[in-house]
Design a binder for these strands. Structure first.
Lengths: 145, 145
DNA sequence: ACGTTATAGTTTCACTTGAAACCATTTGCA
DNA sequence: TGCAAATGGTTTCAAGTGAAACTATAACGT
């Protein structure tokens, strides 16, 4: 069969693929920091970030806000509670639900990691000018819908 | 400790996070297709796409072009060779290297999946107008550097 | 030529992950 | 009330993953 009969996919120009490369590269670079410094996985950090912003939510709500599945959240929480970074209580009116918030130790880590994450964000997107950043925001907005 | 002392990260506005959500959503939607129809993992498909475009390369070059690590490539290739979708020979002048290409069966699958992948790409990015797509390309280009 | 170093690729091991099954509690409704 | 369905969360199981060790071959420097 002649090659000319085929239409190979130009992976290197394929948008979903390029998006995933860029995204993974950036995420991993950021994660590398707190993974080694705080023995904190990316999923754990995401959970902590949500709890920093929305204290006293349930595990389900954490899952929703992180776009992670509930199994991942359950495991991240188990580790975070065990290491004393998150406090888990039971909801007064619904004993199935947990009520989650950062402990003092959790806040300490949060307050070190959050500015670093923001600094990384700034650094990565510094190659873009203001106009490009604005477009990127707008584009991500549309793609998420 | 008063909450006002902290500066929680607004995950939902954090660019690396939003990028990863969009990227994963798109990749998984595309993968869902060929996973069930052809029992083909995303890594396997990526390897096949590279071999469609660059026949007779080595495993190392596949790894480079897919941005996957060599272990993942090795395993994907093992499965693809076993299922008769990829032909593996040994390089004439360097017996360490393999020389890889799609078999007839491999091409058949390739020629079904590739247009579907392109269709998905078109569909996803249809929410963007031409100007936005141009910006996105340019932005990804810069972020990859 | 010969030993060191580098490279291609595979295997092993410990860890992560998601789907499905599961348990406990609550809700909806006959 | 009482029982089926829904919900919050955890556990189990099978598969996927990367780092490091390993095998085989080639390249390099003396």
């Amino acid at each position: 069969m002649a090659d000319s009969a085929h239409h190979p996919l130009a992976l290197e120009q394929f948008l979903p693929y390029r998006l995933s490369i860029v995204s993974n590269t950036i995420s991993q670079a950021i994660a590398a920091d707190y993974q080694t410094r705080f023995d904190l996985s990316m999923t754990e950090w995401r959970v902590m970030a949500v709890l920093g912003r929305f204290p006293d939510v349930s595990a389900r709500e954490v899952a929703e806000r992180t776009a992670m599945d509930k199994v991942a959240v359950s495991r991240a929480l188990a580790r975070l509670v065990k290491s004393g970074r998150v406090i888990r209580e039971t909801h007064d009116e619904d004993k199935r639900r947990s009520v989650l918030r950062l402990s003092e130790a959790g806040w300490t880590i949060h307050d070190e990691v959050a500015p670093q994450a923001r600094a990384h964000e700034t650094e990565f997107f510094a190659v873009l000018d203001a106009e490009e950043r604005a477009w990127l925001l707008r584009i991500l907005e549309k793609l998420s819908a």
